[in-house]
């Protein structure tokens, strides 16, 4: 059963590749090597693939990487406001506890 190699340039976040590889665990194992500023993803399917299934697996992995890149972008851009929302939601609870313990 041949492996499928998917290659990415240096600008591709390795974190997003790892997240995509994790989501693909049920279908294939993925080994990520970084060589000469390029990321090589070696996909080993969990079961034998027939016909065009290897292309479908490659496309699925690329879709997952695309989604993970967007998730990284969203997470980076909203980290600050997320912290504000969490503080507004649960900071009051901590204050209530402090007040009740001091009274």
């Amino acid at each position: 059963m041949p492996d499928i190699i998917v290659e990415f340039g240096a600008s591709q976040s390795i974190g997003a590749l790892r997240e995509a590889a994790y989501r693909l665990i049920g279908e294939a194992s993925c080994l990520i090597d970084t060589v000469d500023a390029r990321h090589l993803c070696r996909l080993t399917p969990k079961k034998a693939l027939a016909g065009e299934a290897d292309e479908a697996l490659r496309a699925r992995f690329l879709d997952l990487v695309t989604d993970e890149n967007l998730r990284e972008k969203v997470a980076a851009e909203t980290a600050g406001v997320r912290d504000v929302i969490l503080a507004l939601a649960f900071g009051a609870l901590a204050r209530e506890r402090e007040d009740s313990e001091s009274s």
Partner: peptide
């Protein structure tokens, strides 16, 4: 505008469920 925290899941090839925090 400001983007708020969101998450998404691909339901089909070109259809996403996008949810707020």
């Amino acid at each position: 505008l400001q983007l708020l925290p969101l998450r998404f899941e691909r339901l089909r090839a070109d259809r996403y469920f996008v949810s707020n925090i």
